[in-house]
């Protein structure tokens, strides 16, 4: 009886989460839509050649992906930690709650809305450029500029997610035993020394955990966000692995090659998480899962 209740949900997961994994066999086939998956001819590893033979389009996508990842790890990852520490140090609970309500909001907006809002503020006829023009300054063209595209992406992610991402750090901060602060205080530690010797060590496990999960996404950078803005910027600056898979597969019909790139990307992600978890264990952290 309980099994019957579980059926619709399990069926949906099986059909749309698990069966598509089998669809990855087309990475080893020359997929022809009119033949279907089963009847398309096998081609061995030919589709993977693009990855290892240095195809310039693929290399460009890989390079952009890695650069954007580095920017995001350097700027996006620490931002919520800093913000959480700042919020945690506020004396007034009320001000803290008001600030939180404001900063959590962008998380719930779709990427379409976020990109549109950025255009309105930073675009050619947007808030900042209109003001600059009215005051006789030259304009500042970030939107649609290939040179500034990566910085723009990073700023958008920070705007959308920094507030929301503080939640997990604030929860970890509230778990730190207050006695540790009292002890530090008795020993004459200043606020900064308490931050360094009590607060940050208290956050270490959570930071390590999130960092490992982030590593799994090294090759995944904001697909929706980028595809929305790709038209104006051009592929050279904006093509990343996920958009490469989409553009080559769905748009240009190179199904096999795209599936191969997607498959390798997924495997690399899993491998990185496992490797990072191993390293975390070596340093005595719990990581994503325990041994």
């Amino acid at each position: 009886m309980l099994l019957i209740l579980a059926l619709p949900g399990i069926a949906i997961l099986a059909l749309f989460e698990y069966t598509p994994l089998l669809g990855n066999v087309i990475a080893f086939k020359d997929y022809q839509p009119y033949l279907g998956i089963a009847d398309s001819p096998w081609v061995g590893l030919r589709n993977f050649l693009v990855i290892f033979s240095g195809d310039p389009q693929f290399l460009n996508a890989l390079r952009n992906t890695l650069i954007i990842t580095v920017l995001q790890v350097v700027f996006v990852f620490p931002a919520p930690i800093a913000l959480a520490l700042l919020l945690n140090s506020l004396l007034s609970e009320r001000i803290k709650r008001i600030v939180q309500s404001i900063l959590y909001l962008p998380h719930f907006l779709s990427w379409v809305i976020v990109v549109a809002i950025f255009q309105q503020v930073l675009g050619g006829s947007g808030l900042i450029n209109s003001w600059l023009r009215a005051n006789g300054h030259s304009t500042f063209d970030i939107i649609g500029s290939a040179d500034w595209f990566r910085e723009l992406l990073t700023a958008q992610v920070m705007w959308k997610e920094t507030g929301w991402a503080t939640i997990i750090f604030l929860a970890a901060l509230s778990q730190i035993d207050i006695a540790l602060y009292e002890a530090a205080s008795v020993d004459g530690a200043s606020r900064w020394r308490q931050l360094w010797h009590v607060t940050l060590p208290g956050l270490r496990s959570v930071i390590v955990l999130l960092f490992i999960l982030r590593l799994g996404d090294v090759l995944t950078v904001g697909f929706e966000q980028i595809i929305l803005q790709q038209g104006a910027v051009g592929l050279r600056a904006s093509e990343v692995l996920d958009t490469y898979v989409y553009n080559n597969g769905i748009i240009n019909g190179q199904w096999g090659v795209s599936a191969a790139v997607g498959l390798v990307k997924g495997l690399v992600g899993v491998a990185l998480v496992l490797a990072a978890n191993k390293v975390a264990h070596l340093f005595g952290e719990r990581g994503v899962y325990s041994k």
Binding site: F16, P20, I26, I250, G262
Partner: peptide, 24 residues
């Protein structure tokens, strides 16, 4: 069944296979 649900949290199916599934 619980494993089926939990494992689905660990990966996302690729764009191409998902598209083909919906198409099929």
């Amino acid at each position: 069944l619980l494993m089926v649900v939990l494992m689905s949290l660990l990966f996302t199916p690729g764009i191409i296979p998902s598209y083909l599934m919906v198409k099929q």
